[in-house]
């Protein structure tokens, strides 16, 4: 099995889907000749032509609204936001139109919006956000946050197949840093199934996206102290694998919820609340959350380091949980 970077896996998956299904096309800024800001679609236009790898004007509204219309007519658009942050310009089209069209008119809107998200390289307030929780609150949208190359590929195929609007958050900090084995053949990964990234029984870390790797580094450190931490990678937030999370809570009784998005109203709050509601009598310690503070993402490396949850933060919280 070849070893691919996270971004290669996304690119491969997309190419594979476009070869397989004529209806799939890509729409976004600079996705053609240039191959996209992060080069996910590099070389695509040569293979698929300018109408299936479409350079759009600087028009997020038209891109997402247009994708919706094309999907209603039977195509499978994959729209790219240059950065996840710019999805705010298309909020109306996701939330007002795409998310509610099936509910009202029984017309599915099978679109995928690819959202390069996350911080870690001084992108500042407008190129670093993780806006997944804002959309998790919108019924009708699905939310995917892969953490590994293997999942990135399988989940993108599922996203394109899914008959609903799917927001596919690809973490920029994983693009070239994370490698892994990825099967060459096509495969899909069902939504709503968490993945055990690391096994353990003493505590469970519930997380997704780039934080899976942060948690993993922290857990490795603690293993030396005889404290084995399970890492549960949710992979998709809408739907999320509640049953699997509760199962882990029952077994481990100590829980850390970890995300890179800011704390208040972050999706971790939903998870923590659900645990409190449904697994209260299985808790041996308060549910702990680690998240970014409630500020815009700062630019300066010193500030950004303080903003993003670090391995040390996770180690410390896990140690406290161990001692509790």
């Amino acid at each position: 099995m070849p070893e691919l970077t996270y971004i290669q896996a996304i690119s491969d998956a997309l190419r594979q889907e476009m070869r397989r299904d004529q209806r799939v096309f890509v729409l976004g800024q600079d996705v053609g000749v240039y191959g996209g800001a992060f080069k996910v679609t590099l070389g695509f236009q040569e293979e698929f032509g300018p109408w299936r790898v479409m350079d759009a004007p600087l028009s997020e509204t038209a891109i997402v609204g247009g994708a919706t219309g094309a999907a209603l007519m039977g195509l499978r658009p994959v729209a790219e936001m240059q950065f996840a942050d710019f999805i705010s310009c298309a909020w109306d089209h996701l939330v007002t139109v795409a998310a509610k069209q099936f509910f009202r008119g029984r017309t599915p809107v099978p679109i995928v919006v690819r959202l390069p998200s996350g911080g870690g390289f001084s992108g500042g307030p407008f190129h670093s956000q993780n806006p997944e929780s804002s959309f998790a609150h919108i019924p009708g949208l699905k939310i995917v946050c892969p953490a590994t190359p293997h999942d990135a590929k399988g989940l993108l195929a599922t996203s394109i197949e899914d008959p609903n609007p799917v927001l596919y958050f690809e973490h920029k900090h994983l693009y070239r840093r994370i490698k892994g084995e990825v099967p060459e053949e096509r495969y899909t990964i069902p939504f709503g199934q968490a993945r055990v990234h690391r096994e353990g029984d003493d505590a469970v870390v519930v997380t997704w996206g780039a934080m899976v790797h942060t948690a993993s580094d922290a857990a490795d450190q603690l293993a030396g102290e005889g404290f084995e931490v399970e890492i549960l990678d949710l992979r998709t937030l809408i739907p999320w694998d509640k049953a699997r999370v509760l199962e882990s809570v029952r077994r481990c009784s100590k829980v850390l919820v970890l995300h890179e998005d800011t704390r208040t109203g972050g999706f971790g709050a939903e998870i923590a609340a659900t645990i409190a509601e449904e697994a209260f009598e299985d808790l041996d310690a308060p549910v702990v959350r680690i998240a970014a503070p409630d500020t815009p993402v700062p630019f300066s490396p010193a500030l950004e380091k303080a903003f993003l949850p670090q391995v040390e933060d996770v180690v410390k919280s896990l140690q406290e949980l161990a001692a509790y």
Binding site: L27, G69, M73, H93, V97, R104
Partner: peptide
């Protein structure tokens, strides 16, 4: 939809980009 009519949303004129996308599908196909 069977008659080619897709429901408006209140937000105006949010259906224009949608119509453009429909046309885009026709053009591509």
């Amino acid at each position: 939809p069977e008659l080619g009519l897709h429901p408006m949303v209140s937000h105006l004129p949010a259906m224009l980009p949608v119509a453009v996308g429909m046309a885009l599908a026709f053009k591509i196909r």
